[in-house]
Design a protein around this nucleic acid. Structure first.
Lengths: 314, 314
DNA sequence: CTCGGCGATACACAGCAGGTATAAAGGACG
DNA sequence: CGTCCTTTATACCTGCTGTGTATCGCCGAG
């Protein structure tokens, strides 16, 4: 039994007449008679009652037609759904990201992507860079935003693009002596109560701080440790001390805080976007396109990938 | 797009390998490749990712396959449902009947039919014989149980079979003077307060009573009129008078009542089963078969019809 | 009784599903 | 780094079957 039989039976039920149903189907009447006969033989029951007044479905025919309609609807929906999925209008995107990404690139990107692709289910997982990388390699994520490029086994199968350069910035409460000053020198920081990110989550950042302040700096040893950048800002705002974090903090200023540039300017690991080199899924492509349009400075780096994923122009 | 494409795509998704999927389908590998290619061209999206490790559905493929599974399920259900309907296992039977039929043949018939055809929806409509006949002719009923054969325009297109012979019986309360007596003579009835059926509903019965008791019998003129036989019995049981009804009342005796045969024995119109001569629906056939097995005396009359409706033995 | 309309049947043809042979691609391995 | 092997795609042929044309059989209308 093929979909053709269903289409023919439905047409016959609609027109109640072999000749007109055949005409509507664009075929001659005899083939329609034969196909209906074949269908009835296969089903094992007479589906239509042929009378002088017209052709009408039997009880078995009614039962058959109801299911046939649904079957054809499902087939049409299969094509439609596949098309939408292929165009990236539906689907799922699992994004792993470091918390500080919520300061700068993510708000705009997520807002834009959610508006352009309302039927894509976004799964957001805040996690440390190393976990993001591992999950990406294991296929548990589709995209990751990390500090610095992914390392370790399997990282060569990822594509990584820097999406922002950062440098060290200090944040204090507006009640703090440093408030109002445009900058703070590294030597001054050594004498402050510091608030820094946990070393186990982002070792690169911690190593950079150690290099800047001195390997065994007592300020660093006595620093308050926070799990993410939001906590650093929050603690600083409540007067706990001087928070140290990425310049991206400037993108989302918080009431009651003051930011000082650290002199000399100290670069931090780049914010990096990564994904599986093999992954050509349209949802990922659409997301990368949104990233490109949202972060103009990194456009060129992604253009190559977007061209590669584009469907072959016939 | 045909059902074949869905079956092939599902097999390919299951086996993740063109060669093995083709073998499972009983075809060679190249045709499968071609059919899948044709399908992808028609859908307008790549549905499977061919890798060294195997063949896996893309996001579009997953969306397609989910719908394809449901479409094929519907097709299988269409055949199954049609078969069940053709065998009369499902469907609907609209039965019109006179209330007194609930006394004798219907309880057994309905119980048996409901047990044998649990998925057939029985629509029971108690109505006067004339309304049953009209509804049957109009196609608003499938079967009717009436008093006497249907009359009027279109009745020739019905088949009618008597399913029980009745005679007049009197019913009284056990406190009534007639209680305990096996019979009552017609002359005695003329002196009783009578309870009879409404003449407008079953004119044949009323005419018979008039003939029996005398055209303008005062007993009949002063009789209590009830809409159906159950009411007659109920009124008699509560001492209102002597109820007159069909001998079928004996089949469902009621606490506190006493039945007397009326002498001389007075035949009443037969209980008649009718249905459209053209109606060969399996549900009706099954119902007629139940009637035949439940009313052995009328078996022969229905055998002919049941043979006519039987599927042609190949 | 004839005519007209409709579905079924007969038969020829062409289009396509499916078969065989083989190419192409891409790892595995010496 | 070349060879082999596995797997999918392509090429080409064949046979089935879906479709078209012609015609029959049936039945009701006039």
């Amino acid at each position: 039994m093929e979909a053709r039989h269903l289409r023919y039976a439905l047409a016959l039920a609609e027109h109640e007449h072999f000749g007109r149903a055949a005409a509507a189907l664009g075929i001659a009447q005899p083939p329609l008679s034969k196909q209906i006969a074949d269908l009835e033989r296969e089903v094992g029951a007479r589906l239509f009652e042929r009378t002088r007044q017209g052709v009408f479905p039997t009880a078995a025919g009614e039962a058959f037609l109801a299911r046939a309609r649904r079957a054809l609807d499902e087939m049409a929906a299969a094509v439609s759904d596949a098309g939408r999925a292929a165009r990236g209008e539906t689907g799922r995107l699992r994004l792993g990201f470091i918390a500080s990404a919520l300061l700068d690139p993510l708000p705009g990107v997520l807002h834009r992507f959610g508006r352009e692709r309302p039927d894509v289910r976004l799964e957001l997982h805040e996690m440390a860079s190393s976990r993001s990388s591992a999950a990406l390699i294991a296929g548990e994520l589709d995209v990751a935003i990390t500090l610095g490029p992914p390392r370790g086994a399997g990282a060569e199968r990822l594509v990584s693009v820097p999406i922002g350069h950062d440098y060290l910035v200090a944040v204090v409460s507006t009640a703090h002596p440093l408030a109002g000053r445009p900058e703070v020198r590294v030597e001054q920081l050594r004498r402050q109560r510091l608030i820094v990110a946990a070393s186990e989550d982002e070792p690169a950042v911690s190593a950079g701080l150690r290099a800047l302040l001195g390997r065994d700096s007592p300020a660093l040893a006595g620093a308050t440790v926070a799990r993410d950048v939001h906590t650093i800002v929050g603690l600083a705002a409540s007067g706990v001390g001087v928070g140290l974090g990425p310049s991206r903090m400037l993108a989302a200023p918080r009431q009651g805080t003051w930011f000082c540039e650290v002199v000399p300017r100290t670069p931090l690991p780049d914010l990096v976007l990564s994904f599986a080199a093999r992954d050509t899924s349209p949802v990922l492509t659409a997301f990368l396109d949104t990233i490109r349009r949202n972060c103009p400075t990194v456009g060129a780096a992604l253009d190559h990938r977007l061209r590669a994923a584009a469907p072959p122009s016939e």
